[in-house]
Design a protein around this nucleic acid. Structure first.
Lengths: 196, 196, 196, 196
DNA sequence: TATGAATGAGTGTTCATTCAT
DNA sequence: TATGAATGAACACTCATTCAT
């Protein structure tokens, strides 16, 4: 019962934030959306911030699991691996309205709430470190780091601008731009080799 | 008196949002920060949302003015123009704590408040259109649009990740990544020409 | 099972009131202290006030039984009888933390809850009447009543100030003061006789 | 305005506690009793506990001031001084319903709330120390302390039993019992002298 | 007999807004 | 122009009570 109710309430939280925004997401609205009473929230999450933190954890967990699931077999080449990471970030579950709005809201809140900030940092570092690992297969350390920072920015930037555009997220266009960027970074290896 | 008081209150709003976040920025805190009474806010801005909207307008105006100021003379080459736009976005006044936090907060809020959303869109389009104009001097329309979308994402992504990193914004590194990207986009023209 | 569970829950109530005070003694805390579930309370006591009333009755019953147990044989002299009553009131089970705090809490509550008030009055009258009975063996009615009222006040006052002092109750000192008072009251008989 | 509103709200608090008890004294009731809104309480007292603490302080201040006012001139004899202290404790403002119920409620609460406990102790010590000072004029230290403890207990006990009796407080009877007790204590000096 | 999940009325508190001065 | 006292709706949270199991 416990995990069921938690899922239910987290889902309701995402829906309410999508509908009215984090600032107006009251526990009354969330409970109503879940078809439950307000008291149940403190029963399962302690208080409102416990629910919000759990919601953010859930989004992060989904992203992480999706990244792992899409990780191509170890025999795949570097570009394929990197494209899988890009794909996970532009995956349907990450670019749907509820998740995008919640992401943005949490990003904003995380600047002033330690618990959220930690989750935020872990996630940021994971993206960078995943990218870095792959680039390292082809590039020297400094260049790999540089490329990882650039691709991470590209991914987040595309995601952000897509979220704010108002229109539906154009995952295809986003993927293309990210693919091009990562190909260019990988091409530097060839340049370097050619120069040698 | 009117413009003075407005500046004063907008400045106080930025400072308070920097200190405690938009969610906890009460008019009592803002008024105190400005050394004025709470009542004065409705006098000059109607209500709280009027003050917040005015604050966001101010940030956008600052960015616009900085972009104009940095616009190189018309004789300069395209790359120089584009670098000037990048520079404006990573300008000190845009990457300082108060402005970054306020930007993020407004981005988040703009998803659920029509007046903010409009301001947000105008700004997004301006960046894209400025970049597009420059790329058009060197690239065909489709390619220019593509490059503009990529560079805009790169700029916002660098800015976003820099804001969230917790550390001071590394404007130099951000500029370098953005310069590289725009150079690569411009290089496509040469490739195309060479291919011809 | 019924009497066992009731004892168990009343004991837990005393312990919780001792620990957090009547105002913060929730049934959740009491149930936890008893190692039982919250639902069980309504099962055995109807509702919370039923449990509290039963708890107060228990304290009064303990005091009454102790007084009876200590009642010296009927052949003992008046002073011995009175000292036994004093002793019962400063008995360990009456001056321990849990009971003292519960007493005070119930005294306070009894001013606004009819059921508790009745219990309170019965107890007050019993102390006065017990004392009065004894004094009557030596003093005329008016004087006996007077002495009883004084000794009752002395007992309750010593008890109250001892409870509030924060330190452990000094039963020895309390007994001494009460003994002295009752001896002085009894001495009036001799004075009266001597005067005659 | 500030002191006026504070008096007004403290008075309302006393009236509400008298009417429904501390446990049911909600700020909504208190505000209504004062003819003000609930928000004003946090404006002037921070929160509810601030108001309650201020209310207790007020009662203690009244008692202290009354004691000082009644303090006979320094040339008066010891018994007169002591009677003045007794009188202050059985003064109308101390034995009126509102004050008595509030006293009891605070006594009870003070066992579990540090801020109230401190006020409680200060007051307890003041009564004892005032009495002790006077007895010292006639008795050796140990005896004076003893007498002071006894008289303090007698005063509080009479007050407590009077409060709980349900009937109106019989200040005359209370005073008489306390006077008798203090006279008896003072008489010990004469006994001692006579014995010498 | 016993549980504890679920409820929802009631509470203290916050805070944007108003308005008399 | 400017104040800040006062308001009261809205909120998160608590907790006695209920009830299906």
């Amino acid at each position: 019962m416990l995990p069921l109710r938690r899922k239910q309430l987290i889902q309701a939280t995402l829906e309410v934030i999508d509908r009215v925004g984090l600032a107006d997401a009251t526990i009354a609205l969330i409970a109503k959306q879940a078809g439950l009473s307000t008291g149940i929230i403190s029963h399962y999450f302690g208080d409102k911030s416990g629910l919000l933190e759990a919601t953010m954890r859930q989004i992060l967990r989904d992203l992480r699991e999706d990244t792992l699931r899409r990780r191509s077999e170890s025999t795949a080449d570097t570009a394929t691996h990197l494209r899988a990471i890009v794909d996970a970030n532009f995956n349907d579950s990450q670019v749907s309205g509820p998740v995008m709005k919640t992401w943005l809201a949490f990003w904003s809140s995380s600047m002033h709430q330690e618990s959220l900030r930690r989750l935020q940092h872990v996630n940021d570092r994971r993206l960078h470190s995943n990218l870095c690992c792959q680039f390292l297969r082809e590039l020297p350390l400094a260049q790999a780091r540089h490329a990882a920072r650039g691709l991470a920015a590209m991914i987040d930037g595309l995601w952000l601008r897509g979220s704010l555009s108002g229109a539906a997220f154009d995952a295809g266009a986003a993927r293309q731009l990210a693919y091009e960027y990562l190909d260019q970074q990988l091409a530097k290896k060839i340049d370097a080799v050619a120069a040698a």
